[in-house]
Design a binder for these strands. Structure first.
Lengths: 138, 138
DNA sequence: ATATCAAAGACTCTTATTGTCTTTAATTAA
DNA sequence: TTAATTAAAGACAATAAGAGTCTTTGATAT
């Protein structure tokens, strides 16, 4: 049970974008460099974030990505959901077992975690020192 | 991000074992039937539960499985950890990024969920009606 | 018109999970 | 002591999901 690498990259990229000066855009090339990813791969992740209305994109020269909403309106959960989708972390495997109590307990725990991550804003950690990106750019 | 089928089967099997009369044993054959699994596959799951000291096994005729501890000493988390192991649900992918704040937030959320699942006892749901096993045994 | 950039889709590679089959070892009962 | 029963272990195959690349298309600015 693990969050995908894509979610990991997405969270780091969103921090990068939040730290960007207001109204500035940045291209995939630069974003990818910080995490040492191939631009085409990160591109797919950015497209998901765009479709989730977390960021905006403009093609062409001087194009790139920027936030699509206020930074205090972007939670960990928003980013995670944009990448992972809406699937539950537990689905009862037993056939014809509506109202499975095991599933109910698991879903409650899931809901609480999601709630907690909904309250955690990315901007709060973006502001802190020590969250420098791209540890070992060569 | 999803718990494995094995965890799913393990939880349901543990409920079966909890509902068993005191000091009774039950073999894989019967346990597997309730979930329509192959005995050899469920066997591997049961071995993990045994190694985690949640259940005991005795080979040979009249052998089988039974609880290894009091039913009020078996939590959802115990079973999950026995199957999934101790891995974290988020590991920062950025190189040379000790003390990643994203990771910290994610790990806190994880810890809270695990804590919650540690407080949830399987016996509490095993006792309730409606948690009948094997919905569509043919 | 050309350079720059995002979006989309086809495609491959790798890894983890899922599941089966076979063999070995332990226990009971006859 | 032999036969039946059962768990444990390991090799193996099948599947699915995730990770990642490459190529083409379409939009934008200069």
């Amino acid at each position: 049970m693990k969050y995908s690498n894509a979610t990991n990259y997405a969270l780091h990229t969103m921090v990068q974008l939040i730290r960007l000066p207001r109204d500035a855009s940045i291209g995939v090339q630069e974003l990818a460099k910080a995490q040492q990813l191939s631009p085409t791969y990160l591109s797919k992740i950015l497209t998901k974030l765009t479709k989730a209305n977390l960021i905006e994109s403009t093609p062409g020269a001087k194009g790139g990505y920027r936030l699509a909403r206020g930074e205090r309106d972007i939670s960990f959960f928003d980013v995670i959901q944009a990448i992972e989708g809406e699937s539950h972390l537990f689905d009862c495997t037993l056939h014809r077992h509506e109202g499975c109590l095991i599933e109910k307990v698991m879903r409650d725990a899931e809901a609480n975690m999601k709630q907690e991550l909904q309250e955690q804003l990315l901007v709060d950690i973006a502001e802190q020192a020590g969250q420098q990106q791209g540890g070992d750019v060569k």
